[in-house]
Amino acid sequence: MRLSSKHLTLIIMAALIVAAPFFFPSGYYFRVGALIFVNALAVTGIVILTGYAGQISLGHAGFAGIGGYACALAPVHWGLPPALAVVLGAAVSAALAYLVGRPILRLKGYYLGVASLGFGILVAMVLNNERELTKGPDGIEVADLGLRGLLKDWGLNLSNGEFWYAFTGLCLVIGAWIALNLFNSPSGRALRALHGSEIAAGTVGIDVARVKLQAFVISAVYASVAGSLTALQNKFVTPDIAGFMHSVEMVTMAVLGGVGSVPGAILGAGILTLLPQVLTVFAEYEQLILGLVMMLVMIFLREGLVPSILRKIRGRGE
């Protein structure tokens, strides 16, 4: 029963990703799709941290920044292939999350939010200021991943947009699969238990500090990989990737869709990624509308879109 709901989610996701291009009016939508997938991947990490474990981070963009700049710097300075740079970025993010998380995660609520925010801003500041390495606020070029060329050699000729759509879509499905695995596993139960009651979690033997740290590290890796993919896809990265607004976006996407739910994360990412695209017509109103959406959803759909909708459907069924 539970197994099938996980597989159902993944199958629907994969089907949507495969089917959507048939309705694309132009190649531009491949790019929008890839943007959504990358954001959704980062947000899936937030679902694990905030939705499962109940911990807040307003600094996860910092890890996206590390992932992004790893892809910009490692190939140039250490001759690492970009694919390995992704792994390096994830490893550095994980290590940093482990070091920073230990003291930070003792804090709760607003304090945790602000401590993580401080961390994210420090990363952004380093990226802005260490011009010799990062070239500063104007950003830096990123090498090509090289996978598209490889596929071409094997006879699979994809446009740049198509390739990134397919590749990030695949990454998202894998990321969702991992997050859904975690949900019903012993580790996932421990995370959700501490969300429910930290004190009770302790009495059943859950090492709350350790388990929180696990969630923090896992979600940092998600953010880092998403950052790497963004940088590789754009072949360019700026310090904005690590900025406070990016952290806020991630959390908002997660909460908009329903923070405990992986499909919710993807829906939230979809809506908030599309919103500015739709609003380009009235670019001046973009901030106004974004702020309004954030407030309205939190006031009227507290649980987020997907859980609220599910509740409605179930309520009708009974």
Binding site: V251, T252, M295
Partner: peptide, 16 residues
């Protein structure tokens, strides 16, 4: 989390 997002939303709204 919701309250954080509401006040950040308000801040973005006022700025806009």
């Amino acid at each position: 989390v919701s309250l954080i997002i509401i006040t950040i939303g308000a801040s973005i709204f006022i700025r806009g």
